[in-house]
């Protein structure tokens, strides 16, 4: 083993240059040329200001916006500099109590919402940065937002339908709505009354 240390060291250094420096830099160069938007993080810019990334969820606190899922990142929800999950055990009392509290909170915020509470609105995502809701999760919030913005619920449901992405090729993934995109459009079409 000792006599192998010399070729091992030399080979490791050569492969570090190849796989650790040349490879990522070449990929970076090509990516920046071919997919500049994605390579920089799919940022959404409005009025020369970065308002977020298409792919990264964020909190919306006011009742006039669609709310994202609960997020377990620390120290605050949707901390995109430190992703995280609750890792709550399914039989943990504190976790079940927390979900109960979220259900009560949602019901109180959305008194006119029909049907059962969509699961994702009361459970925290794996990343803490989930950008999506299911269509049901967005529709659940429609009566509240429609009332606040003074528009018809039907119009708002139309907006959700318009922004719903289906399964890729009809097979992969789940139908979903990007909350940030939806809220940006919401503010554009029907600004909140001052």
């Amino acid at each position: 083993m000792l006599q192998a240390l010399i070729p091992a060291t030399r080979l490791l250094l050569v492969l570090t240059v190849l796989c650790g420096i040349a490879y990522p830099l070449v990929v970076t160069g090509v990516a920046q040329l071919v997919f500049p938007h994605q390579a920089r993080g799919s940022l959404i810019v409005q009025d020369d200001r970065v308002v977020g990334s298409e792919l990264i969820g964020r909190s919306f606190v006011g009742p006039g916006w669609f709310h994202s899922r609960p997020s377990a990142t620390a120290p605050a929800p949707y901390n995109a500099a430190a992703s995280g999950a609750s890792n709550a055990a399914p039989t943990r009392r504190a976790f079940i109590d927390e979900v109960k509290a979220r259900i009560e909170g949602l019901r109180a915020e959305n008194p006119d919402a029909a049907g059962p509470v969509p699961v994702e609105l009361v459970t925290a995502s794996g990343s803490g940065l989930d950008p999506d809701l299911t269509p049901a999760g967005a529709l659940f919030q429609v009566p509240r937002i429609a009332k606040l913005r003074g528009i018809g619920a039907e119009q708002l449901r139309g907006l959700v339908a318009e922004f719903t992405e289906g399964r890729t090729l009809g097979l992969f993934g789940q139908p979903r709505v990007k909350v940030l995109r939806l809220n940006l459009e919401l503010d554009k079409r029907w600004p909140l009354p001052k």
Binding site: S86, F95, I96, V119, S125, G126, D132, T134, G173, Q174
Partner: peptide, 16 residues
């Protein structure tokens, strides 16, 4: 607790 069926999504992402 009366939430919609479809399995637990705690720790899971909507897109998956």
């Amino acid at each position: 607790l009366g939430i919609a069926p479809g399995g637990s999504l705690e720790g899971k992402e909507v897109r998956f």
